[in-house]
Design a protein around this nucleic acid. Structure first.
Lengths: 209, 209
DNA sequence: ACCATTTTTAGTACGGCGTACGAGAAAAGG
DNA sequence: CCTTTTCTCGTACGCCGTACTAAAAATGGT
Protein backbone atom coordinates (compact mmCIF):
# COMPACT_ATOMS: atom_id res chain seq x y z
CA UNK A 1 0.00 0.00 0.00
CA UNK A 2 1.00 3.62 -0.35
CA UNK A 3 2.51 5.09 2.71
CA UNK A 4 1.28 8.61 3.39
CA UNK A 5 -2.01 10.31 3.93
CA UNK A 6 -4.32 9.56 1.01
CA UNK A 7 -5.17 12.44 -1.31
CA UNK A 8 -8.65 13.86 -0.97
CA UNK A 9 -8.89 14.63 -4.67
CA UNK A 10 -7.27 13.79 -7.99
CA UNK A 11 -5.50 15.84 -10.58
CA UNK A 12 -8.36 15.22 -12.97
CA UNK A 13 -10.84 16.56 -10.45
CA UNK A 14 -8.80 19.71 -10.07
CA UNK A 15 -8.55 20.19 -13.83
CA UNK A 16 -12.25 19.52 -14.27
CA UNK A 17 -13.10 22.09 -11.61
CA UNK A 18 -10.85 24.63 -13.30
CA UNK A 19 -12.47 23.98 -16.67
CA UNK A 20 -15.94 24.31 -15.18
CA UNK A 21 -14.94 27.62 -13.65
CA UNK A 22 -13.50 28.88 -16.93
CA UNK A 23 -16.60 27.82 -18.82
CA UNK A 24 -18.84 29.63 -16.36
CA UNK A 25 -16.87 32.79 -15.68
CA UNK A 26 -13.93 32.99 -18.04
CA UNK A 27 -10.24 32.36 -17.69
CA UNK A 28 -9.70 35.23 -15.28
CA UNK A 29 -11.88 33.46 -12.71
CA UNK A 30 -9.54 30.49 -12.67
CA UNK A 31 -7.48 31.38 -9.62
CA UNK A 32 -5.95 28.85 -7.30
CA UNK A 33 -8.14 29.99 -4.44
CA UNK A 34 -11.35 29.78 -6.42
CA UNK A 35 -10.60 26.43 -7.97
CA UNK A 36 -9.74 25.07 -4.55
CA UNK A 37 -12.86 26.56 -3.03
CA UNK A 38 -15.03 24.95 -5.67
CA UNK A 39 -13.58 21.62 -4.52
CA UNK A 40 -14.01 22.44 -0.86
CA UNK A 41 -10.26 22.39 -0.41
CA UNK A 42 -7.67 24.86 0.80
CA UNK A 43 -5.85 26.83 -1.83
CA UNK A 44 -2.48 25.29 -1.08
CA UNK A 45 -3.81 21.78 -1.43
CA UNK A 46 -3.94 22.22 -5.19
CA UNK A 47 -0.17 22.23 -5.30
CA UNK A 48 -0.21 18.55 -4.48
CA UNK A 49 -1.82 17.93 -7.84
CA UNK A 50 -0.44 20.72 -9.99
CA UNK A 51 2.96 22.41 -10.15
CA UNK A 52 1.57 25.92 -10.46
CA UNK A 53 -1.17 27.88 -12.15
CA UNK A 54 0.49 27.90 -15.53
CA UNK A 55 0.71 24.11 -15.61
CA UNK A 56 -2.92 23.99 -14.57
CA UNK A 57 -3.74 25.98 -17.69
CA UNK A 58 -1.72 23.48 -19.73
CA UNK A 59 -3.72 20.68 -18.20
CA UNK A 60 -6.97 22.51 -18.85
CA UNK A 61 -6.13 22.85 -22.53
CA UNK A 62 -5.42 19.17 -22.71
CA UNK A 63 -8.30 18.33 -20.43
CA UNK A 64 -11.10 19.59 -22.66
CA UNK A 65 -10.15 16.64 -24.86
CA UNK A 66 -11.16 16.55 -28.48
CA UNK A 67 -13.75 13.93 -29.35
CA UNK A 68 -12.33 11.25 -31.63
CA UNK A 69 -12.82 11.84 -35.33
CA UNK A 70 -13.26 8.83 -37.61
CA UNK A 71 -10.76 9.09 -40.43
CA UNK A 72 -11.70 8.10 -43.94
CA UNK A 73 -8.33 8.16 -45.68
CA UNK A 74 -9.29 11.19 -47.76
CA UNK A 75 -6.95 13.78 -46.34
CA UNK A 76 -9.04 16.73 -47.46
CA UNK A 77 -12.12 15.46 -45.72
CA UNK A 78 -10.26 14.23 -42.66
CA UNK A 79 -8.31 17.40 -41.95
CA UNK A 80 -11.42 19.50 -42.43
CA UNK A 81 -13.24 17.20 -39.99
CA UNK A 82 -10.43 17.58 -37.46
CA UNK A 83 -10.53 21.35 -37.85
CA UNK A 84 -14.28 21.26 -37.40
CA UNK A 85 -13.89 19.26 -34.21
CA UNK A 86 -11.41 21.81 -32.93
CA UNK A 87 -13.80 24.61 -33.77
CA UNK A 88 -16.64 22.87 -31.93
CA UNK A 89 -14.41 22.48 -28.90
CA UNK A 90 -13.47 26.15 -28.96
CA UNK A 91 -17.07 27.23 -29.33
CA UNK A 92 -17.96 25.08 -26.32
CA UNK A 93 -15.06 26.53 -24.29
CA UNK A 94 -14.69 30.12 -25.39
CA UNK A 95 -11.59 30.62 -23.23
CA UNK A 96 -9.75 27.96 -25.19
CA UNK A 97 -8.53 30.05 -28.14
CA UNK A 98 -7.00 32.63 -25.82
CA UNK A 99 -5.46 29.96 -23.57
CA UNK A 100 -3.85 28.12 -26.48
CA UNK A 101 -1.00 30.47 -27.37
CA UNK A 102 2.43 29.58 -26.05
CA UNK A 103 1.38 26.19 -24.71
CA UNK A 104 3.53 23.38 -25.89
CA UNK A 105 2.35 19.89 -26.60
CA UNK A 106 1.59 18.35 -23.28
CA UNK A 107 -1.06 15.80 -22.42
CA UNK A 108 -2.37 12.63 -23.92
CA UNK A 109 -5.36 14.27 -25.56
CA UNK A 110 -3.16 16.75 -27.36
CA UNK A 111 -0.80 13.98 -28.40
CA UNK A 112 -3.73 11.92 -29.60
CA UNK A 113 -4.95 14.89 -31.60
CA UNK A 114 -1.51 15.33 -33.15
CA UNK A 115 -1.39 11.65 -33.95
CA UNK A 116 -4.79 11.88 -35.61
CA UNK A 117 -3.66 14.89 -37.60
CA UNK A 118 -0.49 13.15 -38.68
CA UNK A 119 -2.48 10.11 -39.66
CA UNK A 120 -4.96 12.16 -41.64
CA UNK A 121 -2.07 13.83 -43.45
CA UNK A 122 -0.29 10.59 -44.20
CA UNK A 123 -1.81 10.17 -47.68
CA UNK A 124 -0.30 13.52 -48.65
CA UNK A 125 3.15 12.00 -48.68
CA UNK A 126 4.57 14.94 -46.74
CA UNK A 127 7.33 14.35 -44.20
CA UNK A 128 6.63 14.44 -40.49
CA UNK A 129 8.03 17.88 -39.73
CA UNK A 130 5.99 19.47 -42.51
CA UNK A 131 2.85 17.71 -41.37
CA UNK A 132 3.42 19.02 -37.85
CA UNK A 133 3.73 22.54 -39.16
CA UNK A 134 0.54 22.22 -41.12
CA UNK A 135 -1.30 21.03 -38.05
CA UNK A 136 -0.04 24.03 -36.12
CA UNK A 137 -1.10 26.42 -38.88
CA UNK A 138 -4.53 24.87 -39.18
CA UNK A 139 -5.00 25.05 -35.41
CA UNK A 140 -3.97 28.68 -35.45
CA UNK A 141 -6.38 29.39 -38.26
CA UNK A 142 -9.24 27.74 -36.41
CA UNK A 143 -8.42 29.65 -33.26
CA UNK A 144 -8.46 33.02 -34.95
CA UNK A 145 -11.56 32.10 -36.91
CA UNK A 146 -13.42 31.20 -33.73
CA UNK A 147 -12.18 34.27 -31.93
CA UNK A 148 -13.53 36.51 -34.67
CA UNK A 149 -16.68 34.40 -34.64
CA UNK A 150 -17.35 34.81 -30.94
CA UNK A 151 -16.77 38.53 -31.29
CA UNK A 152 -14.93 39.91 -28.32
CA UNK A 153 -15.16 42.97 -26.21
CA UNK A 154 -17.22 46.07 -26.75
CA UNK A 155 -15.19 49.14 -27.57
CA UNK A 156 -15.18 51.89 -24.95
CA UNK A 157 -16.93 55.16 -25.39
CA UNK A 158 -13.62 56.82 -26.14
CA UNK A 159 -12.85 54.24 -28.81
CA UNK A 160 -16.26 54.69 -30.39
CA UNK A 161 -15.72 58.43 -30.40
CA UNK A 162 -12.30 58.06 -31.98
CA UNK A 163 -13.68 55.68 -34.55
CA UNK A 164 -16.63 57.83 -35.54
CA UNK A 165 -14.51 60.96 -35.70
CA UNK A 166 -11.91 59.12 -37.78
CA UNK A 167 -14.62 57.91 -40.09
CA UNK A 168 -16.17 61.36 -40.23
CA UNK A 169 -12.81 62.93 -41.01
CA UNK A 170 -12.85 61.35 -44.43
CA UNK A 171 -9.34 60.07 -43.94
CA UNK A 172 -10.48 56.46 -44.14
CA UNK A 173 -13.13 56.42 -46.81
CA UNK A 174 -13.06 52.70 -47.55
CA UNK A 175 -13.21 51.88 -43.85
CA UNK A 176 -16.24 54.13 -43.54
CA UNK A 177 -17.91 52.35 -46.43
CA UNK A 178 -17.04 48.92 -45.06
CA UNK A 179 -18.50 49.77 -41.67
CA UNK A 180 -21.61 51.11 -43.37
CA UNK A 181 -22.45 47.78 -45.01
CA UNK A 182 -21.03 45.75 -42.13
CA UNK A 183 -24.48 45.45 -40.63
CA UNK A 184 -25.76 42.56 -42.70
CA UNK A 185 -22.85 40.14 -42.35
CA UNK A 186 -23.46 36.94 -44.24
CA UNK A 187 -22.92 33.45 -42.88
CA UNK A 188 -19.19 32.84 -43.29
CA UNK A 189 -19.44 29.04 -43.65
CA UNK A 190 -16.48 27.66 -41.79
CA UNK A 191 -16.38 24.38 -43.68
CA UNK A 192 -15.76 25.87 -47.08
CA UNK A 193 -13.14 28.32 -45.91
CA UNK A 194 -11.37 25.61 -43.97
CA UNK A 195 -11.52 23.19 -46.86
CA UNK A 196 -10.11 25.68 -49.22
CA UNK A 197 -7.37 26.85 -46.89
CA UNK A 198 -6.33 23.32 -46.02
CA UNK A 199 -6.34 22.11 -49.59
CA UNK A 200 -4.24 25.00 -50.72
CA UNK A 201 -1.78 24.79 -47.87
CA UNK A 202 -1.15 21.11 -48.45
CA UNK A 203 -0.89 21.31 -52.20
CA UNK A 204 1.60 24.09 -51.75
CA UNK A 205 3.54 21.95 -49.31
CA UNK A 206 3.52 19.02 -51.71
CA UNK A 207 5.01 21.32 -54.31
CA UNK A 208 7.99 21.58 -51.96
CA UNK A 209 7.14 24.67 -49.93
CA UNK B 1 -4.81 78.73 -22.10
CA UNK B 2 -5.60 75.50 -20.34
CA UNK B 3 -6.57 75.92 -16.78
CA UNK B 4 -5.11 73.28 -14.53
CA UNK B 5 -1.71 71.94 -13.64
CA UNK B 6 0.14 70.98 -16.81
CA UNK B 7 0.76 67.27 -17.38
CA UNK B 8 4.30 66.09 -16.81
CA UNK B 9 4.04 63.50 -19.57
CA UNK B 10 1.92 62.61 -22.57
CA UNK B 11 -0.12 59.57 -23.41
CA UNK B 12 2.31 58.75 -26.18
CA UNK B 13 5.20 58.81 -23.72
CA UNK B 14 3.37 56.40 -21.46
CA UNK B 15 2.59 54.05 -24.33
CA UNK B 16 6.16 54.23 -25.59
CA UNK B 17 7.50 53.40 -22.14
CA UNK B 18 5.14 50.44 -21.92
CA UNK B 19 6.22 49.19 -25.34
CA UNK B 20 9.88 49.53 -24.42
CA UNK B 21 9.26 47.53 -21.27
CA UNK B 22 7.40 44.82 -23.15
CA UNK B 23 10.15 44.62 -25.76
CA UNK B 24 12.78 44.26 -23.07
CA UNK B 25 11.09 41.98 -20.57
CA UNK B 26 7.83 40.72 -22.03
CA UNK B 27 4.20 41.58 -21.52
CA UNK B 28 4.17 40.43 -17.91
CA UNK B 29 6.63 43.17 -17.00
CA UNK B 30 4.18 45.80 -18.16
CA UNK B 31 2.66 46.71 -14.81
CA UNK B 32 1.35 50.13 -13.96
CA UNK B 33 3.99 50.56 -11.28
CA UNK B 34 6.87 49.60 -13.51
CA UNK B 35 5.75 51.68 -16.47
CA UNK B 36 5.34 54.64 -14.15
CA UNK B 37 8.73 54.04 -12.55
CA UNK B 38 10.39 53.96 -15.96
CA UNK B 39 9.00 57.45 -16.50
CA UNK B 40 10.01 58.63 -13.05
CA UNK B 41 6.37 59.05 -12.14
CA UNK B 42 4.09 57.67 -9.47
CA UNK B 43 1.98 54.70 -10.38
CA UNK B 44 -1.30 56.52 -10.08
CA UNK B 45 -0.21 59.30 -12.39
CA UNK B 46 -0.62 56.97 -15.33
CA UNK B 47 -4.34 57.06 -14.86
CA UNK B 48 -4.34 60.62 -16.09
CA UNK B 49 -3.27 59.34 -19.48
CA UNK B 50 -4.84 55.90 -19.63
CA UNK B 51 -8.15 54.52 -18.37
CA UNK B 52 -6.67 51.31 -17.02
CA UNK B 53 -4.13 48.65 -17.83
CA UNK B 54 -6.27 46.95 -20.43
CA UNK B 55 -6.67 50.16 -22.42
CA UNK B 56 -2.93 50.64 -22.14
CA UNK B 57 -2.49 47.29 -23.87
CA UNK B 58 -4.88 48.46 -26.59
CA UNK B 59 -2.80 51.57 -27.05
CA UNK B 60 0.40 49.53 -27.13
CA UNK B 61 -0.96 47.37 -29.92
CA UNK B 62 -1.86 50.45 -31.87
CA UNK B 63 1.29 52.24 -30.81
CA UNK B 64 3.79 49.92 -32.45
CA UNK B 65 2.37 51.31 -35.68
CA UNK B 66 2.88 49.50 -38.95
CA UNK B 67 5.19 51.20 -41.42
CA UNK B 68 3.34 52.36 -44.51
CA UNK B 69 3.30 49.93 -47.41
CA UNK B 70 3.27 51.30 -50.94
CA UNK B 71 0.40 49.72 -52.84
CA UNK B 72 0.77 48.71 -56.44
CA UNK B 73 -2.81 47.90 -57.39
CA UNK B 74 -2.05 44.20 -57.72
CA UNK B 75 -4.07 42.81 -54.82
CA UNK B 76 -2.03 39.62 -54.55
CA UNK B 77 1.22 41.49 -54.19
CA UNK B 78 -0.23 44.20 -51.97
CA UNK B 79 -1.92 41.94 -49.46
CA UNK B 80 1.17 39.77 -49.22
CA UNK B 81 3.23 42.90 -48.62
CA UNK B 82 0.85 44.00 -45.87
CA UNK B 83 1.05 40.58 -44.28
CA UNK B 84 4.82 40.73 -44.48
CA UNK B 85 4.82 44.10 -42.77
CA UNK B 86 2.66 42.69 -40.01
CA UNK B 87 5.02 39.77 -39.61
CA UNK B 88 8.03 42.09 -39.39
CA UNK B 89 6.25 44.08 -36.70
CA UNK B 90 5.46 40.95 -34.71
CA UNK B 91 9.01 39.69 -34.99
CA UNK B 92 10.25 43.05 -33.70
CA UNK B 93 7.75 42.98 -30.82
CA UNK B 94 7.35 39.34 -29.82
CA UNK B 95 4.65 40.16 -27.28
CA UNK B 96 2.43 41.50 -30.04
CA UNK B 97 0.85 38.24 -31.26
CA UNK B 98 -0.20 37.29 -27.75
CA UNK B 99 -1.49 40.80 -27.01
CA UNK B 100 -3.59 40.95 -30.18
CA UNK B 101 -6.46 38.60 -29.30
CA UNK B 102 -9.69 40.19 -28.15
CA UNK B 103 -8.59 43.73 -28.93
CA UNK B 104 -11.03 45.64 -31.07
CA UNK B 105 -10.09 48.21 -33.66
CA UNK B 106 -8.93 51.22 -31.77
CA UNK B 107 -6.24 53.71 -32.75
CA UNK B 108 -5.29 55.58 -35.85
CA UNK B 109 -2.53 53.19 -36.82
CA UNK B 110 -4.88 50.24 -36.74
CA UNK B 111 -7.46 52.18 -38.70
CA UNK B 112 -4.83 53.19 -41.20
CA UNK B 113 -3.82 49.56 -41.53
CA UNK B 114 -7.41 48.54 -42.11
CA UNK B 115 -7.79 51.29 -44.68
CA UNK B 116 -4.67 50.06 -46.45
CA UNK B 117 -5.99 46.52 -46.42
CA UNK B 118 -9.34 47.58 -47.77
CA UNK B 119 -7.63 49.60 -50.46
CA UNK B 120 -5.40 46.69 -51.42
CA UNK B 121 -8.46 44.47 -51.67
CA UNK B 122 -10.45 46.93 -53.72
CA UNK B 123 -9.49 45.40 -57.10
CA UNK B 124 -10.99 42.11 -55.95
CA UNK B 125 -14.47 43.53 -56.26
CA UNK B 126 -15.47 42.11 -52.88
CA UNK B 127 -17.82 44.04 -50.64
CA UNK B 128 -16.57 45.86 -47.56
CA UNK B 129 -17.72 43.37 -44.95
CA UNK B 130 -16.04 40.48 -46.76
CA UNK B 131 -12.84 42.43 -47.15
CA UNK B 132 -12.84 43.17 -43.43
CA UNK B 133 -13.22 39.48 -42.69
CA UNK B 134 -10.36 38.60 -44.97
CA UNK B 135 -8.12 41.13 -43.27
CA UNK B 136 -8.97 39.63 -39.89
CA UNK B 137 -8.25 36.12 -41.13
CA UNK B 138 -4.95 37.13 -42.68
CA UNK B 139 -3.92 38.91 -39.49
CA UNK B 140 -4.81 35.84 -37.48
CA UNK B 141 -2.82 33.66 -39.81
CA UNK B 142 0.23 35.91 -39.54
CA UNK B 143 -0.05 35.95 -35.77
CA UNK B 144 -0.11 32.19 -35.45
CA UNK B 145 2.63 31.83 -38.03
CA UNK B 146 4.89 34.17 -36.10
CA UNK B 147 4.06 32.53 -32.80
CA UNK B 148 5.08 29.15 -34.14
CA UNK B 149 8.10 30.82 -35.69
CA UNK B 150 9.35 32.36 -32.46
CA UNK B 151 8.89 29.05 -30.72
CA UNK B 152 7.53 29.46 -27.25
CA UNK B 153 8.18 27.97 -23.90
CA UNK B 154 10.30 25.01 -22.99
CA UNK B 155 8.32 22.02 -21.77
CA UNK B 156 8.80 21.05 -18.14
CA UNK B 157 10.65 17.97 -17.05
CA UNK B 158 7.33 16.29 -16.33
CA UNK B 159 6.06 17.13 -19.79
CA UNK B 160 9.21 15.80 -21.40
CA UNK B 161 8.86 12.61 -19.40
CA UNK B 162 5.22 12.25 -20.40
CA UNK B 163 6.10 12.90 -24.01
CA UNK B 164 8.96 10.44 -24.19
CA UNK B 165 6.99 7.76 -22.38
CA UNK B 166 4.04 8.35 -24.69
CA UNK B 167 6.31 8.09 -27.68
CA UNK B 168 7.98 5.01 -26.26
CA UNK B 169 4.60 3.39 -25.59
CA UNK B 170 4.08 2.98 -29.31
CA UNK B 171 0.62 4.45 -29.02
CA UNK B 172 1.56 7.38 -31.21
CA UNK B 173 3.78 5.92 -33.89
CA UNK B 174 3.46 8.74 -36.41
CA UNK B 175 4.10 11.34 -33.74
CA UNK B 176 7.24 9.47 -32.76
CA UNK B 177 8.39 9.43 -36.35
CA UNK B 178 7.57 13.10 -36.85
CA UNK B 179 9.54 14.08 -33.77
CA UNK B 180 12.43 11.95 -34.97
CA UNK B 181 12.86 13.92 -38.19
CA UNK B 182 11.80 17.18 -36.62
CA UNK B 183 15.40 18.11 -35.99
CA UNK B 184 16.27 19.46 -39.40
CA UNK B 185 13.34 21.79 -40.00
CA UNK B 186 13.59 23.55 -43.34
CA UNK B 187 13.04 27.23 -43.97
CA UNK B 188 9.25 27.63 -44.15
CA UNK B 189 9.29 30.66 -46.46
CA UNK B 190 6.57 32.93 -45.19
CA UNK B 191 6.07 34.76 -48.46
CA UNK B 192 5.04 31.75 -50.46
CA UNK B 193 2.71 30.36 -47.83
CA UNK B 194 1.13 33.76 -47.33
CA UNK B 195 0.76 34.32 -51.06
CA UNK B 196 -0.88 31.01 -51.54
CA UNK B 197 -3.20 31.35 -48.59
CA UNK B 198 -4.25 34.84 -49.53
CA UNK B 199 -4.81 34.02 -53.15
CA UNK B 200 -6.93 31.06 -52.29
CA UNK B 201 -8.95 32.84 -49.65
CA UNK B 202 -9.81 35.69 -51.95
CA UNK B 203 -10.61 33.58 -54.96
CA UNK B 204 -12.90 31.54 -52.77
CA UNK B 205 -14.54 34.74 -51.55
CA UNK B 206 -14.99 36.00 -55.09
CA UNK B 207 -16.73 32.74 -55.86
CA UNK B 208 -19.35 33.83 -53.32
CA UNK B 209 -18.05 32.22 -50.14
C1' DA C 1 -0.06 -1.25 20.81
C1' DC C 2 3.08 2.20 19.62
C1' DC C 3 6.17 4.73 17.13
C1' DA C 4 8.69 6.26 12.98
C1' DT C 5 7.91 7.41 8.30
C1' DT C 6 5.63 9.27 4.54
C1' DT C 7 2.37 12.01 2.33
C1' DT C 8 -1.45 15.39 2.10
C1' DT C 9 -3.83 19.34 4.13
C1' DA C 10 -4.28 23.98 4.78
C1' DG C 11 -3.29 28.20 7.73
C1' DT C 12 -0.28 32.08 7.68
C1' DA C 13 2.39 35.29 5.39
C1' DC C 14 5.01 37.85 1.77
C1' DG C 15 5.56 40.46 -2.13
C1' DG C 16 3.22 42.15 -6.07
C1' DC C 17 -0.76 43.45 -8.66
C1' DG C 18 -4.74 46.93 -10.34
C1' DT C 19 -6.77 50.76 -8.79
C1' DA C 20 -10.28 53.79 -5.53
C1' DC C 21 -9.68 57.71 -2.78
C1' DG C 22 -8.21 62.04 -1.45
C1' DA C 23 -4.88 65.47 0.02
C1' DG C 24 -1.58 68.49 -1.89
C1' DA C 25 0.72 70.94 -5.83
C1' DA C 26 0.76 73.78 -9.84
C1' DA C 27 -1.02 76.30 -13.30
C1' DA C 28 -4.63 80.17 -15.19
C1' DG C 29 -8.50 83.59 -14.68
C1' DG C 30 -10.72 87.07 -12.24
C1' DC D 1 -4.69 86.81 -3.88
C1' DC D 2 -8.13 83.74 -4.21
C1' DT D 3 -10.91 80.51 -6.83
C1' DT D 4 -11.04 77.05 -10.19
C1' DT D 5 -9.20 73.49 -12.67
C1' DT D 6 -6.12 69.90 -13.52
C1' DC D 7 -2.47 66.74 -12.59
C1' DT D 8 0.50 64.20 -8.97
C1' DC D 9 1.07 60.51 -6.10
C1' DG D 10 1.04 58.43 -1.09
C1' DT D 11 -1.96 55.36 1.21
C1' DA D 12 -4.84 51.55 1.33
C1' DC D 13 -7.88 47.60 -0.03
C1' DG D 14 -8.72 43.37 -1.92
C1' DC D 15 -6.92 39.98 -4.81
C1' DC D 16 -3.32 37.21 -6.71
C1' DG D 17 0.47 33.15 -6.80
C1' DT D 18 2.90 30.60 -3.80
C1' DA D 19 6.91 29.58 0.06
C1' DC D 20 6.92 27.79 4.44
C1' DT D 21 5.42 24.91 8.07
C1' DA D 22 2.82 22.59 11.54
C1' DA D 23 -0.85 19.45 11.92
C1' DA D 24 -3.38 15.39 10.27
C1' DA D 25 -3.84 10.86 8.38
C1' DA D 26 -2.37 6.94 6.50
C1' DT D 27 1.16 2.66 6.52
C1' DG D 28 5.18 -0.45 8.14
C1' DG D 29 8.06 -2.18 11.52
C1' DT D 30 8.78 -3.69 16.13
Amino acid sequence: MVRGRPPAHTRDEVVAAAIALADAEGLAAVTMRRVAASLGAGAMSLYTYVDNRDRLLDLMVDGVGAPPVALTGDWRQDVVALAGAQRALMLAHPWLPSALPNRRLSGRNTLAYLEAGLTALEPTGLDGATRMEIIALVTGFVASYVMSETGGRQPTEEQVAALTSAVASGEFPRLAAALADGGQAREPDFERIARWMITGLIEQAQRGF
